[in-house]
Design a protein around this nucleic acid. Structure first.
Lengths: 157, 157
DNA sequence: CTTGAAAATAAATCGCG
DNA sequence: CGCGATTTATTTTCAAG
């Protein structure tokens, strides 16, 4: 991965649906080279996925919360992770240091739905203690990792 | 937004670079209709952005942490949000209920970098108290909101 | 919404710096 | 590795049913 790849990733981050010739113009590289580099990054796994970001206010899932969870014994961990992975309202799950074991991000369309999800989490085997934070507003939410990539580069588009 | 739109969004979520004809085949709708529906969702803002998900392990930003922040007085809020928005290592910032005012997600490439970011956050005006959780592993991280959309639908692809 | 043909674009190929 | 002209294949557009 060099500076050119990063420029390409930056273009794709902004709009992953733009084609190679559009990118080519933006970064002053031939279309063939752009295509070749994209293919390489797809096949070696740097590019994991192309996806779409939706307006959650319009899709009706604009309520979110974080819940910290303690598990009473290590034997429950695998089951907990499996359960959580299968629950669509749980969007993120992190294993963390500190007082709690996991931090989950939930999304729902109403407080009632949120309550249901919270209760399901609390009733997973081994969950001993939880702490819930409701999100009042999202100040920032950068998806994938581009700005960071660019920190260490001088001249990018 | 109807069930067909949701099928289209689901396709785009899986791979936003696939074109209308590919989607058309998957959901048994004519190409023109697919294009028209996508355009509509783009222009009315349901589709916010097409983006790419990178492998952070390979891009060198695979270290992350959450930091909860208390602000000592409301007058500091705006400045805090502005600062945080401008910091690339801060990927997410939520205004939350509870003991703290904000929850931030940080990403960095090393513990040293992480430490720097933590210190920058702590030195923003008005920050009175913080609590840091380091992420040991990411169990789940679903990006945009598709699975939730589908909960309420019976027959999707 | 669908179809199908025309028009416009994009991608793959391939010698060659 | 990158370029860029050519060929090949796809896609989008549009008018009509």
């Amino acid at each position: 991965m060099d500076a050119i790849d990063i420029k390409i990733l930056n273009c794709l981050k902004t709009n992953s649906r733009q084609n190679a010739s559009a990118i080519s113009e933006q970064i002053n590289l031939s279309v063939s080279a752009v295509i070749e580099r994209i293919r390489k990054m797809e096949s070696n796994g740097i590019i994991k996925q192309y996806t779409v970001v939706l307006n959650s206010a319009q899709t009706g899932n604009d309520m979110s919360a974080f819940i910290s969870v303690s598990i009473e014994h290590p034997k429950y961990h695998q089951n907990f992770m499996d359960k959580v992975t299968g629950m669509p309202n749980i969007r993120e799950c992190y294993h963390i240091t500190g007082e709690f074991d996991y931090l989950l991000k939930l999304e729902a369309g109403s407080t009632a739905q949120l309550e249901l999800v919270l209760n399901s989490v609390k009733s997973i085997d081994g969950v001993s203690h939880t702490h819930t934070l409701v999100v009042l507003s999202t100040v920032k939410n950068e998806i994938s990792g581009m700005p960071l990539l660019m920190q260490n580069l001088k001249g990018f588009k």
